[in-house]
Design a protein around this nucleic acid. Structure first.
Length: 519
DNA sequence: GAGTACGCGTC
DNA sequence: ATCGGAT
DNA sequence: ATCCGATGACGCGTACTC
């Protein structure tokens, strides 16, 4: 079997994107995987998930493409077609180019070489990969099925191995070369596991009705972390399994101090204010995303997957929480066990009063379902609502092509703090919560209110009032009122209301946490 | 060298 | 993250 | 019950532009 020609990858992806049937897509991908050499599976899956980009290649690639665009592709067709391995080599070479002055020249050299060997179709494909067009993650679920099909292993077995190793490419290779090894994949300290995800409910009572007796825990507004410790070796990864160990020395130190040698912990990290209350999410991210500062990120843990030789992933939550209390002490996220809605409601109110995002309600008998979004974990957060005015709307793409989709939302500036009194101040955009019927309706309605266009946006007379649900507000530099909505979605149009009855920018600004005292 | 735009990852 | 639609 | 696709605000780091 020869190395897989890139042309075949291109053809398969074209087929996959052209068909609507999930089954057909799986079949096409499975065929591709089955045709690949085992050694090609890791780069192939990386390519299919559009992950192997190294930094900012979009513009670099466009530059190369533009420079090349006048140049005829080599008239004598390349002797050897471009293979997946070639692309993987090129990505490796790109990764090896050091950052800094001159690096873009070196990067372009690598890209030039790739481009020169590629056919037109391959050039198009590479452009889409490198520019990020194919990066949707949408193939993730399909690929698990396809790997199973291509290797003849049960889907559940492949899925479990992929979740436990956080690595579909390696799992595909294992499935092909060592089926027994695949079945034997277990949790490993130092090997990141895909984190368990939660569904959501509107109230604690509703959540409890789904889970039954539950652990009800504070939901902290920070970044998810998974920490592996083996003696003094500590690894910290994020929700997407990115290694952030070097950025979180304080978390490493905190875990090294725990009374346990080998452990996998699941939790959250965030900044606290001097008063002990959580800082705004933005502040946590500013620290989380950078090397360091004096601000100290603190870890809290709500689950333990392994402790000193004991895999706990299939144990009920009650058992895991007990072990957690022993190994993590005061770093355990506060929670109670109950099946009483009133008691849970009181606990949730206290969590909010303490400045947290809400609560998690977790079935007390549930196992840790790595990588799954089940009903065993349910998040409950308060939802706010405001009536805002539509200022404009952007044309949708993909399945929303032809509809005005992404609404520009304005709050009323009754006091005239940001312009003439009574005009509107933009506070965010949303495309969520719209059914196809509503999309059609708003497209027609907004076009009738059109004032002007600019690129993809149609600006309208500010007359239509829309009810918007959101989770909270955040400081904004982009929007003139200094606030932006977090997770805004449409609840419905308020045709009974006129624009001068819309909620005000001052209403929204009162939701902003007071700025920390400078001192 | 300063300022901007992009890419990616957090939610 | 959230939501509606499709499978 | 899940997966997919369309996009939100922000913050960092860095490639690119002048």
């Amino acid at each position: 079997m020869d190395s897989l020609p890139l042309a075949r990858v291109v053809a398969t992806l074209a087929e996959v994107s052209a068909t609507g049937s999930r089954t057909a897509k799986t079949t096409a991908l499975a065929g591709l995987l089955a045709a690949a050499l085992p050694g090609d599976l890791v780069p192939l899956i990386g390519l299919l998930r559009a992950q192997p980009r190294q930094g900012r290649l979009g513009v670099g690639w466009r530059t190369v493409a533009a420079r090349r665009s006048g140049v005829e592709p080599d008239p004598g067709a390349p002797a050897a077609p471009l293979t997946v391995a070639d692309v993987d080599d090129a990505f490796g070479a790109l990764a090896a180019v050091p950052a800094g002055t001159g690096s873009s020249v070196a990067r372009h050299g690598v890209l030039d070489a790739l481009w020169a060997r590629a056919t037109q179709a391959e050039q198009d494909f590479l452009t889409r990969v490198l520019v990020g067009e194919l990066r949707t993650g949408a193939l993730d679920g399909l690929l698990v099925d396809a790997v199973a099909r291509a290797s003849g292993r049960p889907v559940a077995e492949v899925r479990r191995a992929a979740m436990l190793t956080g690595d579909l490419g390696a799992t595909a290779q294992l499935a092909r070369t060592d089926p027994a090894g695949l079945a034997a994949v277990r949790l490993g300290v130092g090997v990141p596991v895909l984190p368990m995800l939660a569904s959501s409910a509107a109230s604690v009572a509703e959540a409890l009705a789904v889970t039954g007796p539950a652990s009800v825990e504070h939901k902290l507004d920070g970044a998810r972390i998974q920490v592996h410790r083996d003696g003094d070796d500590v690894l910290v990864v994020t929700r997407s399994l990115a290694d952030v160990t070097d950025r979180l020395p304080e978390v490493v130190a905190a875990v090294r101090a725990l009374p346990v040698q080998r452990v996998i912990l699941d939790g959250e990290t965030l900044l606290l204010g001097e008063d002990g209350a959580p800082r705004p999410f933005q502040d946590t991210m500013a620290r989380f995303g950078s090397g360091g500062s004096d601000a100290v990120l603190r870890p809290w843990f709500f689950d333990v997957l392994h402790a000193d030789g004991r895999d706990l992933i299939d144990e009920p939550l009650a058992e895991r929480r007990q072990v957690l209390a022993e190994v993590a002490g005061d770093l355990v996220v506060p929670g109670i066990v109950t099946d009483d809605p009133q008691e849970a409601e009181q606990f949730a109110a206290a969590a909010l009063a303490a400045g947290h995002e809400g609560v998690m309600v977790k079935g007390i008998t549930s196992a840790y379902a790595a990588g799954r979004r089940g009903k065993a974990w349910v998040k409950v957060k308060p939802v706010r609502t405001v009536d805002l005015v539509v200022l404009g709307c952007e044309w949708g793409s993909g399945r929303r092509r032809g509809w005005l989709s992404n609404l520009h939302l304005g709050a009323r500036d009754a006091a005239g703090h940001f312009g003439p009194p009574g005009e509107f101040v933009m506070v965010g955009k949303t495309f969520k919560g719209l059914t196809d019927a509503l999309l059609a309706w708003q497209t027609e309605r907004l076009l009738a209110l059109e004032e002007r266009r600019d690129g993809a946006a149609v600006f309208v007379r500010p007359e239509l009032v829309v009810e918007i649900a959101f989770d909270g507000v955040q400081r904004s530099q982009r929007y003139p009122g200094g606030v932006a909505l977090r997770f805004a979605r449409v609840k419905g149009y308020r045709e009974d209301k006129a624009a001068d009855q819309a909620d005000t920018i001052d209403d929204l600004r009162t939701l902003l946490a007071p700025a920390p005292a400078p001192d």
